[in-house]
Design a protein around this nucleic acid. Sequence first.
DNA 1: ACATCTTCGATGCATTGTGCATATATGTAT
DNA 2: ATACATATATGCACAATGCATCGAAGATGT
Lengths: 248, 248
Amino acid sequence: MTGSGTSTEQAFLEQYDASRYERPSVAVDAALIAIRDGALWTLLVQRAEHPAKGAWALPGVFVGFTESLDAAAARALSTKAQLSGVFIEQLYTFGDPDRDPRTRVISVAYYALVEPRALERSAASPDTRLARLSVPWLGETGGPVDAVDDDGTPLPLAFDHAAILGTAVKRIRGKLDYAPIGFELLPPRFSLRELRLVHEAILGRQLNKDSFRRRVLDRGLVLPIGERDTTVGHRPPELYRFAARRAR
Amino acid sequence: MTGSGTSTEQAFLEQYDASRYERPSVAVDAALIAIRDGALWTLLVQRAEHPAKGAWALPGVFVGFTESLDAAAARALSTKAQLSGVFIEQLYTFGDPDRDPRTRVISVAYYALVEPRALERSAASPDTRLARLSVPWLGETGGPVDAVDDDGTPLPLAFDHAAILGTAVKRIRGKLDYAPIGFELLPPRFSLRELRLVHEAILGRQLNKDSFRRRVLDRGLVLPIGERDTTVGHRPPELYRFAARRAR
DNA sequence: ACATCTTCGATGCATTGTGCATATATGTAT
DNA sequence: ATACATATATGCACAATGCATCGAAGATGT
């Protein structure tokens, strides 16, 4: 039945052995997204070792042998960014054989939505930095994005992390149409203007003020809490809270 | 600098060694989706070996060490279903540590849209079968789906493949709202009724006939080719072709 | 005190997309 | 010839949206 050296068996073994016995490494990388000053920001970690030494990378870890992917992503956030309890979701898996020069590393990318203050706190150590994202495409075209330091200097990104960040931006833009995102990016109390600015930063374009107000209110996504923000320098806006936490 | 046995280094090594030296296997599994008789169908392969011997599985292969994920998915389609040149896209990565009883196997799942005739041809061998999908949830709720044989008998699915298929259905339903899917599931010439039945099968609900016609025509997604289908047993409908191939 | 500026929040109107009903057209089946 | 099924076009009601207008409510400058 088996053992006779036919050419079909040879072909089978050639193909099967290569994939079975030389296993790729599997990592998770997390694109942490926050919104501040009308722009998208992410958290980057400077690489201390080769390859891409000195370049800036997404926080990531290798997946433990008995660890789920979600748990590995949570561990990356907790060990590399001192963050926990944030919205996080699997994004896409990047598996170009040449994406890491050391060896074959397949990266299961995640994205997380974080309040800007929490992200600022996690960028305390000197090898981590908040970077502003510069998205060179409109809508959901897709493609890599650039990272720029607080003072405007570009931050070179390691591996294919520019593509990972671009995929995250594309995903978030797409989800905004039907999912109540933005909820994870704001404090518990916010004005409709703040919510709209979050949406505009994500989409990279301006939105109609009145349509946005009507849509959000008519759909019952937010509820007024009966207070106003008296710190704004103009007519104080009503403050709202999210009606129901979804998407988690 | 290094080598002094501090507890932090111990903790670091414990965490790093486990993930680095005992690597998970990485596979791709493909959910092939076709539409026939107003229902969703997929191609399943009966497992000849343990584990889950006799159960039905998605066509899949282990990822070669120097092989990209997309190439592995194409190889799964070509070697297990004799299919090539179809629309295929990465879906989600399933990494539950216990999803495969043999060892840790992380599966990068893909979904593909196939014309029903092509899928029928690929289900020729006795260990492959076309299965009808029974989706027990509405809209984009999500969750596992069941597979039923041609004659109505349920087909037990191996591993977490019911969840993979459910994720594929959910993804396709979501994409239908804004992407010109359905184009990969129909022959080059089709009537608006056939296109609508494809959409209804994907969404699992009926659509308004006139709204569908207007929307498709107004958006210029399809173009009349000036011929009619005279084989239908009623007034012959105009035949259309897709205006532009997108989504690939 | 007063004008000016900014944003808030409400209202009206035109446009567009959609669900639904109606009417006619054009084939097959009996 | 008649019934039946679907195609195709049109009209109407309703909802969502973009856009413009208007008054309200705060801060700031003179």
